[in-house]
């Protein structure tokens, strides 16, 4: 066989190839180790050197010619094999896990306070009357004790009760730690309530406490404003109003300028322009004393806020009962 006929045969064959399998076969037949071109090379090995040289060159030329066409064809085949897609077709939603919105908000609050040097600690949910009431300067016979203990507290058979606020951890930690104390105590609290869209029996509180030699209302204001600004991710105006809690003196209610109407008055702030956000104050000397410290030397500020309410504000949730509903149509939104 001469070069020309091999060339013709190969090119004719290539032209007729319609699929990838045939193309692979062709590669084996002509370009492979035992293919026709190789075979042709071996057939000329006994020719005189000059002849071998010219013929060799020609075979090489033929080989690269065929290979070039072959590669082109192969590229075309590969292109044709690409799958067609159509993104306009409907797709099933991916099944993801989710974290409870309260968990997410609690983490965010913890993160912000940690940045300000507050360590996160936890206290027991079953408390005794001492830490829940007496240690917080709410002795037996005190009107605030009656208001909390008679109407709002769950009592357990065999003694003890479910904490009505995470403040119950205050004295536990004043006892345990050495000043400066900077802690927050997030956790579940319990109140006897008729449940409705804004009242629950199981909900979440975050208590903050700072005890040091010099602590002032000015410090309290700065910390709370900073926290609220980080939390709501915007500039926030706060105001302190006189209030009364047995465990702080002076006591304040902290309002935040309504973020919905910027203080102009809307339904979210009951037209007052302000939203009540937390209770706070300078720790009552009796509480410092109950924690085993000298109230003449140490002062502190404390604050307590609901975790549920800012969560509701954040996501515009209108029913607090959804948090303990176990309803995935609700929970998977977060």
């Amino acid at each position: 066989m001469d070069i020309e006929s091999i060339r013709k045969e190969a090119l004719d064959n290539l032209k007729q190839i319609k699929n990838k399998e045939d193309l692979d076969l062709f590669k084996k037949d002509y370009l492979g180790k035992k293919g026709k071109i190789r075979e042709f090379f071996s057939s000329i090995k006994d020719l005189p050197i000059e002849e071998k040289k010219t013929l060799g060159q020609k075979i090489n030329q033929l080989a690269s010619e065929i290979e070039e066409i072959f590669l082109l064809k192969e590229k075309n085949f590969n292109k044709e094999e690409k799958e067609e897609i159509d993104l306009t077709l409907p797709a099933k939603p991916t099944e993801l896990g989710s974290l409870h919105p309260i968990t997410q908000v609690k983490r965010e609050m913890e993160r912000i306070f940690q940045l300000m040097g507050f360590s996160v600690v936890e206290g027991p949910e079953i408390e005794d009357e001492w830490y829940n009431f007496d240690a917080l300067n709410i002795p037996e016979g005190h009107p605030a004790r009656d208001a909390l203990s008679l109407g709002k507290t769950f009592y357990l058979k065999g003694g003890n009760l479910l904490r009505t606020q995470t403040s119950s951890a205050q004295v536990r930690y004043i006892e345990k730690m050495k000043p400066p104390i900077r802690i927050i105590v997030p956790g579940k609290v319990y109140r006897y309530e008729k449940t409705d869209a804004s009242h629950e029996t199981n909900f979440f509180h975050l208590e903050g406490l700072l005890v040091d030699e010099n602590v002032s209302v000015a410090n309290l204001k700065a910390v709370l404003k900073k926290f609220l600004e980080e939390f709501f991710k915007r500039e926030v105006d706060i105001r302190l109003r006189p209030s009364y809690f047995p465990f702080t003196e002076p006591s304040f209610e902290v309002d935040m300028l309504c973020t919905v109407c910027d203080g102009k008055g809307c339904s979210a702030c009951k037209r007052t322009g302000w939203v009540e956000i937390l209770g706070s104050g300078i720790v009552h000397p009796n509480v410092i004393k109950n924690g085993g410290l000298d109230p003449k030397k140490y002062k502190g500020f404390a604050f307590g806020l609901s975790i549920d309410r800012p969560t509701m504000m954040n996501y515009k949730i209108n029913d607090i009962r959804l948090f303990h509903s176990g309803n995935l149509n609700f929970l998977k939104q977060f």
Binding site: E95, L96, G97, S98, T103, K188, G326, L331
Partner: peptide
């Protein structure tokens, strides 16, 4: 959550 579970809270 990574394992595809959703977190719920039940009453105590």
């Amino acid at each position: 959550k990574e394992l595809g579970y959703s977190e719920v809270f039940g009453y105590s």
